[in-house]
């Protein structure tokens, strides 16, 4: 396997809680707690999970918008923030599209000024940057003559998100982080933007990290999927393998929450009950055992790992690995 374009090794982010004089020292929200993965060039890695599982924190850590507690981020084999790869250069190679299309555009700048901003940071002349902004507007399907001089509040949600995509592409990045980039759009606009993203990916040879809570959209977009639960990876694998033969009961439950397309085969029971536990004080052992239908004593004492490095399809579940002491360990998850 070639060097992955983006690699994350044991990324940890704990947000310390403000403690008073009598507060417990050292307690923290363990938003991301030991996440490792690699993305190959031109792949799309989908990241799914419930709210609060650490998806967005992972994106912000990748962009270095927040400083990780520990762990390394490598771009084409080089650690970010070193002499070989300064942060500013990394930020030219990797860009991000945020969920809130309105909040991510400066209300006082016209659309073309917002897009032209990043290139000028990297030394492109103002005139060239504006030309580039207009070319990109054209590319994302917004006629420059009509839209370049507009302000964000005059645009619809879908148009604004196209502007945000153009803004992210303005520095010609190789990797695009899409953090719930289409989640706020209605379904028909969402489909248009997703198709635009697929076209842009082919055309520019981009690599995507596609973060979403929408399982269908992730399946449509991704070549690889990573399922997160409470700051850790539950399962990772090629999209079709993961969607058709999931190995982690959490993934199975998530997929079970999708509505059936067959009216004779209606879902009658909620697959997952309750909320995820508090990330300040995650359960011992497997973090999912409090909600898992197959939980056994071993699950609350030993924390499962993904089992060996370099596995194409891996699940952090005792049932997926032989010899863990779980009664179903030898078999497959139903």
């Amino acid at each position: 396997m070639s060097t992955p374009i983006l690699e994350v090794v044991d990324l940890i982010k704990h947000f310390p809680l403000a403690t008073g004089l009598l507060g417990r020292a050292g307690s923290a929200v363990r938003a991301v707690d030991g996440v490792s993965f690699a993305v190959q060039e031109r792949e799309t890695l989908g990241i799914v999970g419930e709210s609060g599982c650490g998806k967005s924190t992972t994106a912000r850590l990748l962009m270095q918008l927040i400083v990780p507690t520990s762990g390394a981020i490598r771009y084409q084999g080089q650690t970010v923030g070193t002499k070989a790869l300064p942060l500013k250069e990394f930020r030219r190679q990797v860009q991000m599209v945020f969920q809130d299309s309105y909040a991510s555009l400066n209300p006082r700048l016209t659309v073309e000024d917002s897009i032209a901003f990043a290139p000028t940071v990297h030394g492109v002349s103002g005139d060239q940057a504006v030309r580039k902004a207009r070319a990109l507007l054209d590319r994302v399907g917004l006629e420059p003559a009509r839209f370049a001089g507009r302000y964000p509040h005059e645009l619809s949600g879908g148009q604004r998100q196209r502007v945000n995509i153009a803004r992210a592409l303005a520095v010609e990045p190789r990797v695009l982080l899409l953090d719930e980039a289409v989640s706020a759009l209605d379904k028909s606009v969402e489909a248009q933007v997703l198709n635009l993203l697929l076209d842009l990916k082919d055309e520019m040879g981009l690599t995507y990290l596609f973060i979403s809570h929408d399982l269908e959209v992730v399946r449509f977009m991704s070549t690889q999927v990573l399922v997160m639960y409470l700051g850790r990876i539950a399962e990772v694998g090629p999209t079709e393998a993961l969607y058709t033969a999931s190995r982690h009961p959490y993934t199975t439950a998530l997929l079970g929450s999708l509505l059936s397309m067959d009216p004779d085969n209606r879902r009658t029971q909620a697959p997952l009950a309750g909320d995820p536990p508090n990330p300040i004080d995650p359960p011992p052992g497997c973090r999912f055992h409090t909600r898992c239908a197959y939980a056994e004593p071993v699950c609350s004492t030993r924390e499962p790992d993904l089992g060996g490095v370099g596995l194409a399809h891996a699940a952090a579940c005792h049932m997926a690995h032989p010899g863990t002491g779980h009664s179903r360990a030898a078999g497959r998850v139903a």
Binding site: R60, M63, L65, L87, K88, E89, R91, R92, Q95, M96, F98, A103, S104, L105, N106, S114, F117, A118, V121, H122, N164, R167, V171
Partner: peptide
């Protein structure tokens, strides 16, 4: 948008 500006370097 300030985060985005930071992310652009």
């Amino acid at each position: 948008y300030v985060e985005a500006a930071r992310a652009s370097g």
